[in-house]
Lab assay of single mutants.
Amino acid sequence: MIINNLKLIREKKKISQSELAALLEVSRQTINGIEKNKYNPSLQLALKIAYYLNTPLEDIFQWQ
């Protein structure tokens, strides 16, 4: 199972779901689904999230 800290990191950086979704060219619902662990992002999307949040990938997504 993958645990993610996306919501915590996104809120710490004061970025809304809508703003992050626009940067990543995905829907706000996609961001919401990832934050709620409804599904895991593709590797490409995970890397883009880490890039736009300027945060190491392993700080956002962790195996458990």
Rank of each mutant, 00 (worst) to 15 (best):
M1A: 06
M1D: 05
M1P: 13
M1T: 08
I2W: 09
I2D: 05
I2F: 10
I3K: 14
N4P: 02
N5Q: 05
L6E: 01
L6P: 01
K7G: 08
K7M: 08
K7I: 06
L8E: 15
L8D: 15
L8K: 14
I9Y: 10
I9F: 09
I9Q: 06
I9M: 07
I9W: 06
E11Q: 12
E11D: 08
K12A: 14
K13F: 09
I15V: 11
S16C: 05
S16N: 08
S16D: 06
S16V: 04
Q17L: 12
Q17A: 09
S18M: 13
S18N: 14
S18H: 12
E19V: 10
E19L: 09
L20N: 00
A21H: 01
A22Y: 09
A22L: 13
L23I: 14
L24F: 03
L24W: 01
E25N: 13
E25K: 13
V26Q: 03
V26S: 04
Q29L: 11
Q29T: 13
Q29F: 10
Q29I: 11
T30A: 08
T30G: 03
T30R: 08
I31Y: 04
I31G: 00
I31R: 00
I31M: 04
N32D: 15
G33V: 10
E35A: 01
E35W: 01
K36M: 15
K36Q: 15
K36R: 13
K36G: 11
K36W: 08
K36V: 12
N37V: 03
N37H: 10
K38R: 09
Y39Q: 11
Y39D: 07
Y39A: 10
Y39E: 10
N40M: 15
N40V: 15
N40G: 15
P41Q: 02
P41K: 01
P41V: 12
P41T: 04
S42I: 04
L43D: 05
L43S: 06
Q44E: 14
Q44R: 11
Q44G: 13
L45E: 05
L45P: 00
A46K: 07
A46Q: 06
L47A: 12
L47V: 14
L47T: 11
L47W: 09
K48W: 06
I49H: 00
Y51W: 12
Y51L: 11
Y51D: 09
Y51H: 14
Y52P: 00
Y52Q: 09
Y52G: 05
N54H: 11
N54I: 05
N54M: 12
T55K: 04
T55L: 07
T55N: 04
P56E: 08
P56V: 05
P56M: 06
L57E: 02
L57K: 03
E58R: 10
E58S: 13
E58C: 09
D59L: 12
D59G: 08
I60M: 06
I60H: 00
F61V: 02
F61N: 01
F61Y: 03
Q62F: 07
W63E: 04
W63G: 04
Q64W: 08
Q64T: 13
Q64G: 12
